[in-house]
């Protein structure tokens, strides 16, 4: 509840500064500063012609698809790194290094390899999140209490049982936080990918706003990107995370 009031205050302050700087003191030109009313108008326009929904839907689909592939790749790399000492020593530092690359750095490669296509966008998304997921998988498994695996071994667990009945459930809460972080990387990478192509999506709508010098549209799209990101984080990942922790008596 308090956050809603806070947001209302923020919007009021925004409107006030717009009015002060553009209308009153004429410090800025109206095309350079978005206003709450202007953004709301653009929102109504783009909503009524369906383009905003279409762009959001397209972006979400791409984000989810890219993220799903990144999860598969990240989990495999993470498991390999965790399991083989050789890879732990030699591959992990490289993965850690590559993971620090901002996702835009993958754009040139993706365009050269895939052209201005959806594939190119997916490539950026995957590269932007798979490595961080790999690192979280490795860390999540490492942080399991040794007694969990010891107990299972002395009860006769084989390798496969150890992974399915102990390592997987034991690392699950941390795994979910890793995926949550992976998703936020994927979502950011998606925007980096989308702004370079012309296929319909939030990133492309953002660039269109710039090309039309429509600052309100730019602002609107930025807000939608933030809101979608928050919704997925709070309504999916955080909910699962909390449930897992609560079941184990670890939630605050």
């Amino acid at each position: 509840m308090s956050i809603i009031i806070f947001v209302v205050i923020l919007i009021a302050a925004w409107q006030f500064f717009y009015w002060l700087s553009v209308d009153m003191l004429e410090l800025c030109k109206s095309y350079a500063v978005p206003s709450p009313i202007g953004v709301a108008e653009r929102f109504a326009d783009l909503l009524s012609d369906g383009s905003l929904l279409k762009a959001t839907g397209n972006s979400l689909l791409r984000g989810i698809a890219g993220f799903a592939i990144a999860v598969i790749i990240g989990v495999i790399i993470g498991l390999l790194i965790n399991h083989f000492n050789y890879l732990q020593k030699n591959l992990k530092p490289i993965v850690l290094g590559v993971q620090t690359l901002p996702s835009v750095c993958w754009v040139p490669f993706s365009i050269l390899w895939f052209g201005l296509s959806t594939k190119a966008i997916l490539f950026v998304v995957i590269m932007g999140s798979a490595f961080s997921i790999a690192i979280s998988v490795d860390n999540a498994i490492k942080n399991i209490l040794p007694i969990y695996t010891k107990a299972a071994l002395t009860m006769g667990a084989n390798k496969k049982q150890l992974y399915t009945y102990v390592i997987f459930p034991a690392s699950l809460p941390e795994l979910v936080s890793g995926l949550k972080q992976g998703w936020s990387f994927a979502w950011r990478a998606l925007m980096a990918g989308e702004v370079m192509t012309t296929s319909i999506g939030l990133g492309q709508t953002l660039i269109m706003g710039r090309d039309l010098a429509d600052i309100n549209q730019v602002m609107l799209v930025m807000l939608v990107i933030v809101i979608v990101g928050i919704i997925i984080d709070k309504c999916i990942f955080s909910v699962i995370e909390k449930r897992l922790l609560k079941k184990r008596g670890l939630a605050a």
Binding site: A151, T154, G156
Partner: peptide, 18 residues
């Protein structure tokens, strides 16, 4: 190696919280 013919009970219970 470890096996079910020699089950261990530890000081910390080693039960699975899930």
């Amino acid at each position: 190696g470890p096996g079910a013919d020699r089950v261990v009970m530890f000081q910390e219970h080693g039960l699975y919280p899930w």
